[in-house]
Design a protein around this nucleic acid. Structure first.
Length: 424
RNA sequence: GCGGAUGUAGCUCAGUGGUUAGAGUGCCUGACUGUGACUCAGGAGGUCGCGGGUUCAAGUCCCGUCUUCCGCCCCA
């Protein structure tokens, strides 16, 4: 094979043409329909933004300490020598568009939703790809804890509608940058003994974002973290009461959650609330989605101070779960496959197909002048419910012979009863 | 970025350095001139991931490289 899809990318193909069922296109379409149904009920409107942006948008918004931005961006210089990056995440471009078009002038809160492909130069594996897809929502212009709770609730609702019940919702508050800085110092102080023995690179990473150290699977580090201060102790009254508000609105919505100190997220712009969903149906190290509040991002990008909150939902991971739990129904098969028993019947078959389609039926027929047997094979392969046969006898008597393929049951009916029969 | 495994027909996979690389399944044709899913017969389909090397001879051994998967790391 001379060419294959680039590392970490996936083709999304028609059913039965792909090894990994999660990449069958009908599954994506099914999830997309549920997504848009769900968010539009909550008043979210779709926004579409370019696949690439000026790289500074991400460098300045999403982070100095974030690996996603610092190490994993797909970037290049275009022919005008502009430094471009394929978007690694959805929020920053949406906020750029929001500001550029003065969407906030229409009044707050603003609810935006999207489906985007993102690019991250990471190590691919099951559930980890270099081109990945996300659904996302942004609720812009509200500082109420109800906004945080709404984002989490809509996300929860969406997963429920998909049929995923076993969800773990982990939330945390990481306060404002000043709180985080003070807390980071406390972590470093607590771990100073452990850090001394680490590589220079590790020490550098730790200094850049000490909160990351909390979210670790390294047994020695976990040991060293024993008795480490809690971030709650570094939050001011405003942050604490906001977080309590979020929790109580979640309880009101009947959403079970747990407060997890380890949730710190990979992007720098988050303030206060951060959250992740995981499920036992997928490797629990892989978050299904993640999001949080970003009260300072819009201001930082040059807009009025505008408190906002959002979520990004990994579609590949969603589909891996939906597929492994077998939650996606089979796509609708054709209602009928029309069979021409003689060549004279081919044109009447085409006319009948037009008629049935205009009535809303899904109908197919053979276009290669194949023999009847082959037409039946096609009908079978497409999973058609009925084969409708038109031949000499039927044309003479103004009838159709209709065969239910699953049972083999076959009857001949007057032509004007066909639609009635299909409707059954 | 590091370590381990992997790659042969559309798909799932056999294949001890030695003829023309196989099976199952799917596809096409026929047995069957008006009937699919069962049966039988035939057929098409492969640069054995790619590139080097060793050898009289490489799918098989060696080196490199790419892909996928599993750990470490990181994230959706």
């Amino acid at each position: 094979m001379k060419y294959q899809a680039p590392r970490g990318t996936n083709d999304i193909l028609p059913i039965e043409r792909t090894k990994e069922k999660a990449f069958e296109v009908h599954r994506w379409q099914w999830a997309e329909i549920l997504w848009w149904e769900t968010v539009s009920q909550y008043g979210y409107q779709e926004i579409r933004t370019p696949i690439f942006e000026d790289i500074d948008l991400f460098l300045r918004s999403s982070g100095e300490t974030s690996d996603i931005v610092q190490k994993e961006m797909y970037d290049f210089y275009d022919k005008g020598e502009r430094h471009i990056a394929l978007r690694p995440e959805g929020t920053a471009p949406v906020m750029r568009a929001y500001l550029e078009h003065g969407i906030g002038n229409l009044g707050h809160p603003t609810r935006l939703a999207y489906e985007v492909e993102c690019f991250r130069y990471g190590r691919p594996g099951q559930g980890r790809y270099r081109q990945l897809h996300q659904f996302g929502m942004e609720l812009i212009g509200s500082e109420s804890p109800q906004a945080d709770a709404e984002i989490i609730a809509v996300t929860h609702e969406f997963y429920n509608r998909c049929g995923i019940d076993e969800l773990k919702v982990s939330i945390n508050s990481i306060g404002r940058p000043a709180d985080r800085a003070a807390y980071g110092e406390a972590i470093l102080k607590h771990l100073s003994g452990w850090l001394k023995d680490q590589e220079a690179e590790e020490q550098e990473k730790a200094r850049k974002n000490p909160l990351r150290l909390i979210d670790t699977k390294n047994p020695k580090l976990i040991e060293a973290l024993d008795g480490v201060p809690q971030i709650q102790d570094y939050l001011d009254d405003r942050a604490k009461s906001h977080f309590e508000g979020v929790c109580s609105y979640l309880e009101e919505s009947g959403i079970t959650y747990e407060v997890d100190q380890g949730v710190v997220r990979g992007l720098d712009y988050y303030t206060d609330t951060v959250f992740e969903f995981t499920t036992s149906a997928l490797d629990e190290k892989l978050a299904l989605c993640g999001g949080g509040r970003y009260d300072e991002l819009i201001q930082q990008m040059g807009g009025q101070p505008t408190p906002s909150v959002g979520v990004g939902i990994g579609i590949e991971r969603l589909l891996l779960v939906l597929t492994s739990l077998d939650l996606i129904p089979n796509p609708d098969a054709p209602d009928a496959f029309l069979i021409a028993a003689t060549d004279d019947a081919r044109k009447p078959v085409r006319d009948l197909a037009r008629l049935l389609r205009s009535e809303g039926y899904t109908v197919q027929y053979d276009i290669d002048d194949k023999k009847m047997k082959q037409q039946f094979k096609q009908a079978d392969r497409f999973g058609a419910r009925y084969a409708v046969i038109l031949g000499e006898d039927e044309m003479r008597e103004n009838t159709y012979t209709i065969k239910e393929l699953a049972t083999g049951e076959q009857t001949t009916i007057p032509q004007d009863q066909l639609i009635e029969k299909l409707a059954q």
